[in-house]
Design a binder for these strands. Structure first.
Lengths: 344, 344
DNA sequence: ATGAAAGCGCTAACAA
DNA sequence: TTGTTAGCGCTTTCAT
């Protein structure tokens, strides 16, 4: 009785399938994991039963045996100034999609906001995840240090700013190149100089972006004195500062974020200046606000889908202990041109 | 030798701890799961060893035994018109945080975009998740039907519009009340009538929001004829339509989304009308764009953190087979007042 | 090409 | 209060 009951259970197991197909459990397992070992007709019969019964291997059992969860951990930080929600959402989706291609799923976990390392260790020791994707854009390398110490396989989105020689695998976007591109675009519009706005608390990321502006203006040989501002990150502050510069006659602004750029745009509109004609403004991250605002904000768009793809690829290599050809990958962003630099 | 090697392994197990503490494996297990069963001094000793060894129970083994993964599945849809990224990000974070309070984590998975049901069944049969949170705001009830059929524990964010009598657990926001509130706010500003803009493809959600506008204008006894528009969901369309109405003298607009509201705002600015003084506009979802645009957009803000909390609570009840007191929870949104309706 | 045995690490049920 | 036994469902190893 008992064996029979089991065989008709809601959750069929290998044994259920094996019995129904008249083979051993091992053969069913092979049908799934090494189909080429089976005689084609056996394989067909087993697969038919699997399909008929709607059998899926129990993840916990497989995980226990193989020591692989096919799960990638991602710690979600509380909403903060560093990462705006829309790009994060875009990245997350891309990550889920790309991970799916290698049979992985994402495990989201939260940690004590006061401790950037909280949660990683426990998940790893519990063998709950195979590895991590770390959003290390702004926090520095402390996470990476710990992860390396506990032997966690991981790939970060973000460079090791404080240790460029580090051999840990990372993927990042060349923000500086994007900003340089944007600045050159402004200069090509005929502006004799370009101001730079960034976040006072922007850290190495904003410093990197600024370096892109610097490279462009230096190459062009245009003046830079008194044209940079590091601001509190909100529209009002940016608007006020931009107003001052506009009143001095400055007509082009490259900004480290869309928020700052929107402030500049407003200051220009305040003064009856036509964006894209009288004045040029560029932002960063191609946020919804950049797309929706009037008259549209030219912005640097990071290839987050590609970033996700590279991260998954790299993590796959790390997990399989494959030697990684190039563990540091820097991707080029695009410039999305809108009316703030082009037309009216 | 072999047993000794095991005991000093990187990943300690119950046996390792038990041996070190001089107790049985079961006692160690109890120390973790039913500490009150142990004699305090035994407990202390075991916990000390656990701490010393950095032991965490293997998730797969526990999951296999208890048939509970402590994982909640959430299918992420490709970015679409229905859900904007910022609110989704906000909700996701809240969900992760709230789930953590009951020891749960989120498993993100993707499914074939053409099949809204893809992925659920497989995860459930693999006992990879304990239950699901379903974002059912726009897709209709097909997901719920399937989930119910396969016996999956789940809670949806979104009402069963097509079957209000359904007993499935859900949490939703009373969008209609939010819009009614916004409309009354506009009327209180002295406007003799209020136009309504929504998405042509908005489905029951936009119909619900519209009903809030309807309730407010009817209660106020103001005219409604020719004041509603169902539009393609972009700023340009909204701006053009708003222009027509503005030219007819309409001065107040309640909108089903921030995107539509931004179009209205632009149309007003085109005509030199002062938002918050000459004309009033309200949006929905308090998006970053609403916060960043000039002069700021009054918008209905959904309590997504509360929604997440209620969902986790409800799912907890469903999972534990606790009888659910109130399996249908409707939360009230707030109105965030900005310059588009107030001041200039 | 297929089957049998063993065991991954844990907890439920029972025994002491 | 603690220990013993058994087994969750799977895959690895080895035998056939």
């Amino acid at each position: 009785m008992s064996p029979n009951r089991r065989l008709t259970d809601a959750h069929p197991t290998l044994a259920t399938v094996a019995h129904r197909a008249g083979v051993s459990r091992q053969t069913v397992s092979n049908a799934l994991n090494s189909p080429d070992l089976l005689k084609p007709e056996t394989l067909a019969r087993v697969l038919a039963v699997i399909d008929e019964l709607g059998y899926s291997p129990n993840r916990a059992a497989r995980q226990l045996r193989t020591r692989s969860s096919k799960l990638i951990g991602l710690r979600v930080e509380p909403a903060n100034d560093a990462t705006s929600p829309a790009p994060r959402d875009r990245f997350l989706h891309a990550l889920v999609d790309r991970a799916a291609r290698t049979g992985h799923q994402l495990l989201l976990f939260s940690g004590d906001p006061g401790d950037p390392l909280d949660g990683y260790d426990a998940l790893l020791r519990a063998t709950a995840v195979d590895g991590f994707v770390v959003l290390d854009q702004h926090t520095g390398a402390s996470q990476s240090d710990l992860l390396r110490r506990i032997g966690a396989p991981f790939v970060t989105f973000g460079r090791p700013w404080d240790d460029p020689a580090s051999s840990r695998p990372w993927v990042d976007v060349d923000d500086a190149a994007g900003v340089r591109n944007a600045t050159e675009h402004l200069l090509a519009g005929g502006h004799p100089c370009v101001a730079w706005f960034d976040r006072a608390a922007g850290g190495p990321v904003d410093a990197d972006r600024r370096s892109g502006w610097q490279a462009a203006v230096r190459a062009a040989g245009v003046p830079t004195d008194g044209l940079t501002r590091s601001l509190h990150h909100d529209v009002a502050t940016s608007r006020a500062e931009a107003g001052l510069l506009l009143d001095e006659g400055v007509r082009a602004f490259a900004c480290s974020t869309d928020t700052l750029a929107l402030g500049v745009l407003q200051a220009a509109l305040d003064r009856g200046l036509r964006p894209g004609v009288d004045v040029g403004v560029t932002g960063f991250d191609d946020s919804p606000a950049a797309q929706l605002c009037w008259p549209g904000l030219t912005s640097v768009r990071r290839p987050l889908e590609e970033v996700a793809a590279e991260i998954v690829d790299l993590l796959g290599a790390v997990l399989s202990l494959r030697p990684v050809e190039n563990p540091a990958r820097l991707l080029e962003p695009d410039l999305v041109v809108r009316a703030s630099t082009h037309g009216g």
